[in-house]
Every structure is written in C-alpha cells, then in structure tokens.
C-alpha cells in the first residue's frame, strides 16, 4: 500500500498511502493520503433512482462533497462540479442506463493539493467499485513561485509563497488533459511547462494505481 518515490529529484511527489474497501457499506471506497492531505471517497452504484432523475441513454452521476467544517459553501459546489465532470468522462455511463452512480467525498485533512488528492481517491474508489471505465485519471498539482520555479505537489509552506497553483488531470491511455484548474496569475510559457511536468509526473500516480489494484485483486499482478 505504500509506494516508494522515484529517485529523480524533479519528479518527486509526496508519499502516497491508500487503503481500499475502507468503508464496509459502500460498493467501493478508498482513503488516500498524499503527504498529510487525506480524503476518503465512497462510491455507490449502479443504483435505482427516481424516474425524474433517470437518463435514458446513460447513468446519472451525482457527486456530494462535504468539507471538514461541515458547513456547506459555494466552493464545495465548484469542487463537486469539477469531480463530476472528470468522473463522467471516465465512466462508461452508457453501460448502465437509467441508473444512478453516487460519489461521496469527505475531507479529512487539507495540507495542500487537496482537490488533486480527492480526484485520485475518486479514481481508486471507482476502480474498487468495479465500474466500467474508459480510462483511469490521475491528478497532479503544482505551484509556481515568484522566480518561476515549478514545484510539484506543493506543501502548505510552498503554497504561501507561490504566485500560482495549478492542478492537471490526465488520462491513462494517451495522457491527454481531462481537467485543469488554476489559481493566481502566470505566463503562457509557465503554463505549458507546468503542464508538461505534471504530465510526466502523472506516470508515478498511474504506477501507484497499478500497485494498489494488484495488491487487492487475485488475478491481476
């Protein structure tokens, strides 16, 4: 469950630890920690849902996010929107028509790179639930400081001094960009360079997924 980091200094992500089947009442669940940031995700589906919410050709995906404080806010809706769009592009919804799939995320600790941790945990929980997916996705976050240096998977101290933070989500088949969102202001070249760095770093995350899946399944790995 624990993965060792790559020896290359440039592509160092914080240590990731994961446990699947963490919750015993959901169809799939995962708790993932990246450094000190922790999130737990539970996936239920395909479920029977009300006639009004049913969609004839595909599954209806519903995402619920709850923050540590418990009080709902607008930022939560934004996170739900991002996670929902990412998961929808990954899940083969056409195989589960007229059903619903629910993804629930609970924030446990936020020490930088939180939404990336949530997205990775979602992917692991979806794999654990056994839902048919087009591709898996990996999220990598990075921060750009005043001098233009790019730091992957930043810790809170680095986030304080950064001028911009970015998170990119790549898919496993062609490493193309699925989702991206940024904070702060930066130049075009910084954006492209950060995207390329994160693209290469996503390999580490995909390797981590493979390790986790092989530990939990009897046939693969």
């Amino acid at each position: 469950m624990i993965t060792d980091n790559d020896e290359l200094k440039d592509f160092k992500l914080r240590p990731m630890k994961c446990e699947c089947n963490y919750l015993n009442r959901s169809d799939g669940s995962a708790i993932l920690s990246q450094g000190q940031t922790v999130a737990v995700v539970s996936v239920n589906g395909p479920l029977d849902i009300k006639m009004q919410s049913q969609s004839i050709g595909k599954a209806t995906l519903e995402v619920l996010f709850s923050s540590k404080g418990g009080k709902p806010s607008i930022g939560d809706r934004y996170k739900e929107h991002v996670i929902r769009q990412t998961c929808e592009s990954a899940i083969l919804g056409c195989l589960y028509p007229r059903t619903g799939i629910t993804v629930t995320i609970q924030e446990l600790e936020d020490y930088g790179g939180f939404l990336a941790c949530c997205l990775n945990a979602c992917c692991l929980a979806l794999l654990n639930a056994g839902l048919a997916m087009r591709h898996t996705f990996a999220a990598v976050s990075c921060a750009i400081d005043e001098q233009g240096n790019i730091q992957l998977d930043p810790a809170p101290a680095q986030l304080e001094t950064s001028r911009a933070t970015m998170t990119f989500v790549f898919e496993s088949r062609e490493k193309s960009l699925v989702t991206a969102f940024t904070d702060g202001s930066y130049s075009d070249s910084a954006y492209s360079e950060a995207m390329e760095r994160c693209r290469s770093a996503s390999d580490l995350v995909f390797q981590f997924y493979k390790q986790i899946v092989s530990k939990y399944s009897y046939v693969i790995g």
Partner: peptide, 19 residues
C-alpha cells in the same frame, strides 16, 4: 498578457496543439 485563470472540465480530452 498574463493568464490569470484556466479551467477545463468535461467535453473531450485536450491535446497539446489544440491548447
């Protein structure tokens, strides 16, 4: 001249030259 926000969600996946 500086990018101050870039958000991408949904739709199809994005390749480098499109970007």
């Amino acid at each position: 001249g500086f990018l101050c926000s870039s958000q991408k969600f949904g739709g199809s996946n994005f390749s480098v030259d499109c970007e």
